[in-house]
Design a protein around this nucleic acid. Sequence first.
DNA 1: CTGTTAGCGCTTTCAT
DNA 2: ATGAAAGCGCTAACAG
Lengths: 341, 341
Amino acid sequence: MSNTNLKQLAAALGLSISSVSKALRDSYEISAETKKRVVEMATRMNYQPNPFASSLRRKKSATIGVVIPEIANNFFALAIDGIQMVAEQKGYHVLTYLTHENNTNEVSTVRHLLGGRVDGVLMSLCRDTQSVDHLSSLQESGIPLVFFDRVPEQMSCPTVTTDDYESGFRATEHLIQSGCKRIACLSLSHYLSISNKRMNGYMDALKKHGLPVENELIIQCTNDNEYNLSLIKTLLKGRKRPDGIFSTVEKLAISVYYVTQEMGLEIPKQLKIISFSNLRTASLLNPSLSTITQPAFEIGLEAAALLFRMIEKKTFGNRIDKLELKSALIERKSSERINKN
Amino acid sequence: MSNTNLKQLAAALGLSISSVSKALRDSYEISAETKKRVVEMATRMNYQPNPFASSLRRKKSATIGVVIPEIANNFFALAIDGIQMVAEQKGYHVLTYLTHENNTNEVSTVRHLLGGRVDGVLMSLCRDTQSVDHLSSLQESGIPLVFFDRVPEQMSCPTVTTDDYESGFRATEHLIQSGCKRIACLSLSHYLSISNKRMNGYMDALKKHGLPVENELIIQCTNDNEYNLSLIKTLLKGRKRPDGIFSTVEKLAISVYYVTQEMGLEIPKQLKIISFSNLRTASLLNPSLSTITQPAFEIGLEAAALLFRMIEKKTFGNRIDKLELKSALIERKSSERINKN
DNA sequence: CTGTTAGCGCTTTCAT
DNA sequence: ATGAAAGCGCTAACAG
């Protein structure tokens, strides 16, 4: 911990502790001259206020918590980037917690957060979260809480999301317009509204274009990657192989790549793929991969901005803010040259 | 902040505050029965200890700080993942700070950290850090400090790195063995030891194979992406275009892709590329990209483990730990399998 | 085994 | 304009 404290500073200056404290906080009660002396001495003695004493006394932590499923994921990494930017500008610190897509971790993290370590929480649910009890308890404890991307359905709360239904619709339509007749959908989790919305968009696009919605083409994936791979294998090796795949998340699209390579399937000739992805270079590295790219950084930015509005009590009464941003569809025609959309 | 505190808990139980405190910390001084009563009441009243009071009193924060250049970067995201895993297991919280490759941010972050908010710091330098004064001051303040990947050269301190010289050597040799005669090197920063080591490996590989080391083939890149692009363009559009490129970081390899596409250069026919990259799917998405992949997750793991050894004072005297892990070279021969487009 | 007490370092009335 | 004093909630001697 830091060594010099207010007491020592005060002693060195021949002032009282409270005067020094006030001087450092630029109180109007302190004369300009004294302030100058104090600040100078503070720098000279390399004074750093003890954050815990301050937090204890003032009942605020100058810290926000961010709870996400994983960090080695381009979407969340970019979102954190945006969050950090706002936090830093507000003089706040950021505590990050990873749930690893595991509800038990999510629950225990929330319990920790209840202790008052943070002034507000930004959260994106894990894929297997069903009950929202832990979320409600956080909310009821009075700690401002904003969800982004993966938001709860059964609970009224401020959220920042993207146009998932529409994106799913457009993605599927893109495959249809590229000639696909039999399109599979890889769902992240049927507990997550984003996954369901994307899937609903997929189904409606099929319907609009007179294609049947077939259950065996809708794959509910899990946390077990090996299992997902086997599901995808089964799908692609079946008698009636799909000619297009819409993946609701990047990771599953990558799994599809693995399987196609193993099988020697030609992409995009034999199979077209479109996926949600924030691997911004995906379509650069592989011209046959069309992607739906969410404004991840902006989502982080907006979510954090909303949270700070709540922390600073600039938000009104019970009004629940719901912000929806737009995703971008980055198309790649199979044989097209790269630098255009 | 939390609502119920020790005082209320004690009142509800008809015990003294200190007994309750001891009971909750499972002190040997308290009877089993009392402990049980206390724990039960604590859960019933939803008691959460105030972390700041505890930190203030015990002079430890149960928090570590992680200072990195950026988070939207596969290497750092994976490293954080490893760090978080260890921290969580130790019951520690993780504060993340991004310097955005800017030394000024690094310095001010370190100053914040001096305040005692964390019990230890994990750090990876930003590309333009030259002076290590701020780092020394942190170290001298007694806060355990471990550097990973981007470590200072002019300072003795515990570090976790990879075999950068060797990796640079092998990467370059790989290009040579693939038939390249004129290989350029994209350097991240001449202030960073990792970049220099990788470059030294590159130069020695050239020498070993009797190829000349040419200054105009060694590109010192900067923080300005546009400028880097122009450097790469100049390089590739010059009269004597290189037939191979060794990039010391992923981002610069991506920039090369942009330029080659713009120019219509064929990869890997006209230009072979090898790059440090933790985009684990890079070579899957693009079969012509060979990569050197660092064990990023493990680096995070080891760095955190080392830090906790220091925090727990299990490390001896002045012995400086230097751990070096191995990177993997993931080769792709130009015409090799994988269905190409 | 349980309770009393004295702070950790800071902020904030309330006096002077 | 400055200082004295109380206390945020918790821990850790020290008593009993």
